[in-house]
Nucleic acid binder design. Structure first.
Length: 510
RNA sequence: GAGAAGCUAGCUCAGUCGGUAGAGCAACUCCCUUUUAAGGAGUGGGUCCCGGGUUCGAUUCCCGGGCUUCUCACCA
């Protein structure tokens, strides 16, 4: 291509020109297959040593590998290239002395972002760089939409991409270009696997329950609505699998879990995505103490197996996941932080929201939009206590009024056997001894409905069939839910949930 | 939903007190067969997010819109 020709056309058009040039020579720029690809990381270890201490022999057997071209250094009739696959990067050396005429033509028409397959002997250059002397070089996929060029030296990255439009909307570019993004989602996958392994090893069974439900219950949140045409009914995307999983305990399974998406029709933030992944775990003949142990075991196991230590970095903090974690009482923690003692209202049938607001105002809290006493108390907790729970903390014994699915503490009818683990100032989960008294459950649902009547924004919907299930009989059961996205944020040391969800919800752009 | 900030070349960013814009990398031409943020010489590349308004003239000022980020609200 002449300079004049290149002047007025886009990068894509230039590459289309190279594509046509290849086709004109009978080279298929998108061949059907490439056989025998070796993993780049593996062949590096094999031929250069895990600590980069080996040097391949002169008569070493050639290797075959493939990957995306991420760097080209043109030396005239020879070039240094770098290719990258899922697990690694390696330098190639290729020139007209050893390549066939056709392969050399491909080399001369390579662009950053092309995917190539090569065969050649590993060797070290003068400067010691592990390299493959590519004696065969095939184009496997021609790049037409140029990738950002990222250069590195001494671990420092130059240029790179920071544009959110690319990072989140076109995640494939983020993954192709940013090693950190690839590492984050590989870690996410490893976390899911480790959690499943741990539960399977303890005899739990993974199940799948409906994501489209006629009644969205099991949590207090606004659901998405959808419609089934053949039945001509509206359905809700589930906000929690809880009530279905407990039906399975009724049915006789004793250890079940489900790890999958929930959907809540609420705002988007660095900590919220409308669809998010939860794991819910139920164990019959167990209680919330069992779930406390399990929670700590899960976090500790992940830390040790995936990061090699119970001490893990998060932002400016070092989080110690070693059990046992600190335990605090819900109301006691509020009293300590604010001096406000809400416990004395526990016995009251219907404590006044106005009274709670007055108390909250005395410590500078505005509770204007809230309608019930315990909503105001919860505000005090989330404002004054939650942000300070940096190290793992188990907050236990919540008021019954805000825990419609949890069992009361024997001898203390106003508090329930419930806890929430907090780490880095964020709620990581929710667990309790499951309420299995059907008549009591019915009363709790009715109380929720009454709260809704009196103006509470979000309450739990009544599910009559679930009450029927409890009437059949559910053994004493411990249940635990953990927000997987936030858990991954913790282990991946990410501040935004969008950094740990491959395709976070964004407004479509036209 | 509210407030603040951002949007300029493929990428990362300057800049224009209103006169249609620059750098580095990438691209293109040329030199170079052990380089590695390779190097050297040269060339091109922009609806300055979109639409109105003011103006002789708007990428710049004003109004409206779009998308994103941050904070707040709702929530996990």
């Amino acid at each position: 291509m002449s300079e004049a020709e290149s002047s007025a056309i886009s990068l894509t058009e230039q590459r289309l020109g190279k594509l046509d040039a290849m086709k004109a020579r009978g080279i298929d720029p998108y061949p059907v297959r490439f056989s025998g690809k070796e993993d780049i990381h593996t062949l590096r270890v094999t031929h250069f040593g895990a600590d980069n201490s080996l040097t391949p022999a002169e008569d070493v057997q050639p290797v075959t590998t493939a990957g995306r071209v991420v760097a080209i250094r043109d030396m005239g009739k020879a070039q240094f290239l770098q290719i990258q696959d899922q697990n690694g990067k390696i330098q190639l050396y290729a020139g007209n002395k050893t390549l066939s005429e056709e392969d050399y033509f491909v080399l001369r028409n390579l662009d950053l972002g092309d995917i190539i397959g090569i065969k050649g002997k590993p060797f070290r250059t003068k400067t010691g760089e592990p390299t493959i002397h590519a004696d065969e070089l095939k184009i496997l996929s021609k790049n037409l939409a140029p990738l950002p060029v990222v250069k590195e030296k001494d671990g420092e990255t130059y240029d790179g991409i920071s544009d959110i439009e690319l990072r989140y909307r076109q995640r494939y570019i983020d993954l192709a270009v940013n090693a950190d993004a690839r590492a984050t989602f590989a870690l996410r996958s490893a976390i899911l696997r480790e959690i499943r392994d741990l539960l399977h090893a303890r005899g739990f069974m993974e199940v799948e329950t409906p994501m489209m439900q006629a009644i969205a219950s099991g949590a207090a949140a606004r659901p998405f609505t959808t419609h089934h045409n053949a039945l001509d009914i509206d359905l809700y995307m589930r906000i929690a699998p809880e009530l279905y999983l407990k039906r399975l305990i009724v049915g006789g399974y004793e250890k079940v879990f489900e790890m999958n998406r929930n959907f809540r029709n609420e705002g988007i933030s660095t900590k919220h995505n409308p669809e998010f992944t939860m794991i819910e775990i139920y164990q019959a003949y167990a209680d919330y103490h069992t779930m406390m142990e399990l929670t700590q075991d899960i976090f500790e196991t992940l830390a040790v197996k995936l990061l090699g230590s119970t001490e893990i970095p998060y932002g400016e903090h070092t989080i110690s996941l070693k059990k046992p974690w600190k335990k605090v009482e819900y109301l006691e923690s509020i009293k300590e932080a604010t001096g406000l003692d809400f416990a004395k209202f526990l016995g009251e049938e219907n404590p006044s929201a106005a009274e709670a607001k007055k108390m909250a105002a005395s410590v500078g809290l505005k509770a204007d939009g809230l309608h019930t006493f315990w909503e105001v108390v919860d505000l005090a907790f989330s404002e004054k206590v939650e942000p300070n729970l940096i190290q793992p903390t188990i907050v236990m014994h919540y008021p019954k009024a805000i825990s419609p699915l949890a069992k009361s503490i024997p001898g203390n009818p106003h508090l329930v056997e419930r806890f929430e683990p907090y780490i880095t100032g964020r709620e990581m989960g929710n667990a309790f001894s499951e309420l299995n008294d059907p008549l009591e459950q019915e009363r709790r649902f009715n109380e929720q409905a009454a709260q809704k009547e009196s103006g509470a924004e979000e309450t739990m919907a009544t599910d009559d069939d679930f009450v029927t299930a409890l009437k059949v009989g559910m053994p004493p059961t411990g249940g635990l839910g953990i927000g997987i996205d936030r858990l991954v944020m913790l282990f991946a040391n990410k501040a935004s949930i969008k950094d740990v969800i491959l395709f976070p919800l964004l407004r479509p752009n036209k």
